[in-house]
Amino acid sequence: MTIADTQNLPRGLTALANPTRFLALVRVVLPVLTIITIGLLAIGLWLGFSVPDDYQQGRTVRIMFVHVPSVWMAMGAYMVMVSGALGVLVWRHPLADVAARAAAPLGACFTFLGLATGSIWGRPMWGTWWVWDARLTSFLILFIIYLGLIALWNSMEEPAKSARIAAVAILVGAINIPIIKFSVDWFTTLHQPASVLRTDGPKLAPEFLYPLLTMGLAFLFLFLTLHLMAMRNEILRRQIRTLQRKAAREIRSANKAST
């Protein structure tokens, strides 16, 4: 993959095809994103703990302020990976595989949090930690897909080879995203239907909606911050690998010359 391969991309993305230029951008953007994330988390938590008790859920309604944003980010991270997969297969953007690979552990963490906090909320509200309904099961499958993709990347040493295989696997796994979203409409589930992301507008009372949206925004900025940091790590990993191979080649040719 070369920068020349990315000529058909929009101009902004082409500029970022150079990892050195991308790392310079990360250095500037990261402190700003960190400050915004901390600020939004502080406001979101303060708003979340200031809400009145819900008439049905009581105080446990506060669990929603970490559960729902985690679920949004679990699915959002997968959509980032889908964009990365398309970037690998269609535009051959050098950073597309880096972006997809960096998003996978983050997506897995947010999916785990969605499952864990949902289970903790379910015990007092539903009387059970877990049910095999369509929403919970499809979300568990998302977690398994994340783990599978991480294992796939780790099992292959050569980034150019693993990128294409992983990209195809990501696109196949993307079928699960609409299943998660619409499972509550297509099947009879214990999980309640969507109350925020609806075509006819949110059904949540404003005193719960605004803290939830603030926490959602905070989690989005947290994801963006961690994703840029993880992408930077992945670029460094590839640079180290290139240098190690170069060192091995130099040792080999030096040995050949001496014999």
Binding site: R59, P105, L106, L113, A116, T117, I120, W121, L226
Partner: peptide
């Protein structure tokens, strides 16, 4: 309160996972 343990463990596990990841 009655559900304090559930609320605290939800926020606790979130804090541990996100901080651990960072």
């Amino acid at each position: 309160t009655q559900y304090f343990g559930f609320i605290a463990s939800s926020f606790g596990v979130t804090l541990i996972v996100l901080l651990g990841m960072t």
